[in-house]
Design a protein around this nucleic acid. Structure first.
Lengths: 244, 244
DNA sequence: TATAAACTATTACGTAACGTCAGAGTCAAT
DNA sequence: ATTGACTCTGACGTTACGTAATAGTTTATA
């Protein structure tokens, strides 16, 4: 059980924000002390993670609340949407970068505002919200394909983990070896095909998370045996350096 | 001279926003009709572009006003900062994507909020703001290196344009030729080295802008002769297709 | 030339997501 | 017992607009 102060520090949100989220019913702590002090547990933190992700995507808190409290709220689906939205946001930023380059270097004078267009982004987030406030008919339709996606998801995760199992088998060899490097490429490809374009830079970021000693490390090692995460991280480093 | 309606349509901001920006002195139109209707010219639109860029970067309007109205406001420098900030924002989003992947696929359970950390971004934008509200001493120091950067900038732009001059010379050859493809690579490298990491995806976006028929096209053709922009755009397409 | 249709202006009020006090109770340690 | 650190709950302020409401303006058409 954590106090507001601790959660605030850990998650990087202000105490006032936590109090506010409690007030509007977005994130109630699991308990209160006799004096009325808020006490948060791990499940609350998990909720907070989702809230913050949606917040980064500029969802109004009201909508976030509706989504998270929805009876058919599905973590996996939500994360998928979030990833897709992040992808769109990244694209938006890339457009802006090109736009800025245009007026800086090429001296574009006549007025072009296409780069500021957010319709794609807004369209998708509108859809994401609709999913959770929908009519019974719509829900039924959704329900059917939900099972499909749920299964798909398991398969998705399992196949990803298989890659780490493979890594475990060669974790004592050279991370620069052809086998290891090939595995890295397959990890990258797998992410790109199933989730989002995994550039070398992103891959490098992933590598750091793997070897960081946190839960990533633990989970990967659970599949491949101790040292797997660090081994993969090393292989990724080498891979990215060479691709450089 | 454009009316509010026209500017609103073109730039994708609401009329109310334009009226508001006028009211708070962020963007006064150059003129008014006898009836008090706002009239905007191209310079106003240019200002609006900068405003929108800063707004995308989450600068408060007050700060944007201070920056834009500053006597030592420097378009080029501002754009450079904006690009750097966009780069940081992109990185931030990539971190979030990896984070989302972590909890989705790897089942990271224990709580990690590092991905939400905005300190780097905030730090840089703080610095950017400081530049324009700084003490005389600081300003003097800045002034000295301003000349340097101003010169650098000219050189930067000139060298970039030289690439298009080169493109002009081969614009009647095959865009898939080794020469053309090599030129594309040099354009990409130039941007990456001097401005921001220009991935193939970004490059593809640039290509589209080049051939879009707008000012990009005009400006490039001014350096390489008619058809240069489209030629480069074609070469970029081929280049990116081959790179996968 | 009258008059509708479309545009614009200003004023006023509403909203979202907090930040910032202010006043008061709580807890841990000295 | 008191100090310092922490927490609570209002109440009000703020930013960047959206949303009417009311009124004047311009353009097109009958």
């Amino acid at each position: 059980m954590m106090t507001v102060h601790e959660v605030s520090k850990l998650a990087g949100v202000s105490i006032r924000t936590l109090q506010y989220y409690d007030k509007i019913g977005l994130l109630h702590p699991t308990g209160y002390t006799d004096a009325g002090y808020r006490l948060y547990d791990d499940a609350d933190l998990e909720r907070l993670q989702h809230i913050l992700l949606f917040r980064e995507l500029e969802f109004p808190l009201k909508d976030i609340k509706a989504i998270i409290n929805s009876p058919d709220f599905d973590r996996g689906k939500a994360l998928e949407q979030q990833i897709e939205l992040l992808r769109l946001k990244k694209e938006h930023i890339e457009n802006l970068m090109n736009f800025a380059l245009g007026i800086k270097i090429l001296g574009v004078k006549h007025m072009d505002f296409k780069a500021f267009d957010r319709s794609k982004l807004d369209e998708y987030s509108r859809q994401a919200k609709e999913l959770y406030g929908s009519t019974p008919e719509y829900k039924e339709m959704e329900e059917k394909q939900k099972n499909r996606t749920e299964e798909d998801e398991k398969i998705l995760a399992d196949r990803f983990m298989l890659l780490f199992k493979e890594a475990g088998e060669i974790k004592n060899s050279d991370p620069a070896s052809a086998d290891a490097q090939n595995l890295v490429k397959r990890i990258q490809d797998y992410i790109t095909e199933n989730l989002y374009t995994c550039t070398n830079k992103i891959l490098r970021g992933l590598g750091k998370m793997y070897s960081g000693g946190g839960d990533f490390t633990t989970n990967i090692d659970a599949y491949g045996g101790e040292g797997t995460a660090v081994f993969v991280a090393n292989a990724i480093e080498i891979y990215c350096d060479n691709a450089g």
